[in-house]
């Protein structure tokens, strides 16, 4: 099946006072219909910038896309004018932001905020739009929707507000929904509700979702496929099972190892030492080398290509080269791998 969105060799740079920051340095991925692709990475890894580029929201003139294409519906989105992008934004592709407190207009009734897109993109009459807005509020699980449609954002709790944001994003039945850390600002119990809501809606509407997060727990919950980003590149991509049960990249090992397991062992967490590189002067070779305990000479000289692990699973590390020494992932990560995980579940129930 053809992917609905195809990103090829995307580069995004920002000119700052101190120099040019290469925030995204060649990202490839394809999004299939009805799937959820999670993009995981630390802050500054380029995950948010990538999605901003998809939405045509890279702030000009400082930010620009020097290379690469974003194919959507046979069009290269990087070539479209702002006007043309406006037709796509909110209609075919829409976005949910991190902070429900700031992503809603505080001076506008929520009904009106939902109806805006409907009237603009779907040319509905005011009355039709209102009815549709009520349907949407029902869909995202806001009780008493006919009354609440005329309320202002401050009359909603954080979780309810994020539901409204989801309703706005879904208003025009977008083909692609981009969620940029939609649950990070929420409490765990509310987060669980929103995640359930998004999965539920995806099932009903067959939307493709790009889900950006740094929380691997959330990834395990929502994702079908996972792309791990580091220093502006995808370093490992695969199905959710590939990434959690058969990770290949030492950075992924580090991420998994730095999460404590709940089933009660008191070993030390594997912290990835150091900090991510400064993308104003990205290092030569593998950007992760400086923090990688398995680093080899070649890591310092040449960037690793994406090696194929299986049909669904690729990783960019020289460790996968035939000549590389065979290394085992750290104990804490191995424990998570298939076969050893049931222990945790038993403890919990």
């Amino acid at each position: 099946m053809d992917p609905i969105l195809d990103v090829r060799n995307l580069h995004v740079s920002f000119d700052t006072y101190g120099g040019t920051v290469q925030a995204v340095r060649g990202v490839d991925f394809a999004l299939k219909k009805g799937e959820t692709l999670a993009i995981v990475g630390e802050s500054g890894s380029g995950k948010s910038v990538t999605t901003k580029a998809l939405m045509g929201l890279v702030a000009k003139p400082a930010g620009h896309i020097p290379k690469g294409e974003i194919l959507f519906d046979g069009k290269d989105l990087t070539k479209l004018s702002n006007k043309e992008m406006q037709k796509i934004r909110g209609k075919d592709m829409s976005m949910i932001f991190q902070d429900p407190m700031t992503s809603l207009n505080p001076t506008m009734k929520i009904g009106k905020q939902i109806m805006e897109g409907l009237i603009l993109h779907q040319k509905l009459s005011k009355k039709e739009a209102r009815n549709r807005a009520i349907e949407l509020l029902d869909l995202v699980g806001i009780p008493d929707s006919t009354k609440r449609i005329d309320q202002y954002p401050h009359q909603f709790s954080g979780g309810m507000r994020q539901r409204v944001v989801v309703a706005i994003a879904l208003a025009c039945n977008p083909k692609v929904l981009i969620a940029d850390e939609p649950t990070t600002a929420l409490d765990v119990t509310i987060q669980a509700q929103i995640l359930e809501l998004m999965k539920d809606i995806q099932k009903k509407m067959d939307t493709s979702i790009i889900f950006i997060t740094h929380d691997l727990g959330v990834v395990a919950n929502v994702a079908d496929r996972v792309a791990v980003m580091y220093a502006g590149k995808i370093v490992e991509v695969g199905t959710v099972d590939d990434i959690f049960y058969n990770p290949k990249h030492p950075y992924t090992w580090g991420l998994l190892g730095s999460m404590p397991t709940v089933d009660g062992n008191d070993e030390k967490l594997i912290a990835i030492p150091g900090t991510p590189p400064d993308l104003m002067n990205p290092p030569k070779g593998d950007a992760f080398a400086a923090r990688n305990e398995y680093a080899m000479q070649i890591d310092l000289e040449e960037e690793p290509p994406l090696f194929k692990v299986s049909d669904t699973h690729y990783a960019a590390t020289w460790l996968l080269h035939d000549d590389a020494p065979k290394v085992e992932p750290p104990e804490a990560v191995k424990k998570r791998m298939k076969g050893n995980i049931s222990a945790g579940e038993e403890n919990r129930s």
Binding site: T189, A192, D215, G217, A220, F244, Y245, I341, E345, N347
Partner: peptide, 28 residues
Amino acid sequence: LYKNPLHPYTNSLLSAIPLPDPDFERTR
């Protein structure tokens, strides 16, 4: 507290933490 949570709020809090384990998440 983790093995034997008594208060219903603790229970709901524990049941809401997402764990980095897809199989577990599918059945949560």
